[in-house]
């Protein structure tokens, strides 16, 4: 076992891990931060995306020891300081960017990483950026719309359910 320390959502954390401990397992099992999901565990689905030193990374495809000294941001770090939803999260809620919610942590983290690099992405740029994030419910349209809305660009208002 080796000691690992890093900053997660602004807080210094540490623990004893094996060489083979994945970052996502350190987050979920050791830190009990279960917001980051493991969908496929084969590096394909993107549900486990977190930010490591500001970059989107699949937490199931990096060892915890490789994040030594890094600044990690997870979905738990995306809310505002007062606990209200952050801008990307709020846009997902407003525009129905989720159904079952399993892929949502990865989608929100990928969307936030995109907006940091490219504050006003086109629809095509959003779709291309989400190539590594798989959603089996929504068909993606409302996810794209939510990210577009979170960037401050005009989108069609969400449909209102019939009374």
């Amino acid at each position: 076992m080796s000691h690992v320390s890093m900053k997660v959502n602004g807080k210094e954390v540490g623990g004893e891990v094996e060489g083979r401990t994945l970052l996502v397992d350190f987050l979920r099992e050791d830190l009990k931060m279960t917001g980051t999901h493991v969908g496929c565990d084969t590096s394909q689905c993107g549900a486990c995306v977190v930010h490591v030193d500001g970059k989107a990374v699949k937490a199931c495809t990096i060892f915890a020891l490789e994040a030594e000294g890094a600044e990690v941001t997870t979905i738990e770090g995306m809310a505002n300081a007062d606990g209200s939803l952050g801008v990307v999260q709020a846009a997902f809620q407003e525009h129905h960017g989720l159904q079952c919610g399993f892929c949502t942590p990865g989608m929100v983290m990928a969307g936030a990483a995109l907006l940091k690099e490219n504050p006003k992405p086109s629809e095509a740029e959003i779709r291309q950026y989400l190539e590594g994030n798989i959603c089996r419910c929504t068909g993606y349209h409302n996810i794209v719309k939510a990210i577009m809305a979170a960037s401050g660009q005009d989108v069609e208002p969400p449909a209102v359910a019939a009374e």
Partner: peptide, 9 residues
């Protein structure tokens, strides 16, 4: 290559 998260690693 791959997707953004893959390209970052």
């Amino acid at each position: 290559i791959g997707d953004p998260a893959v390209r970052n690693r």
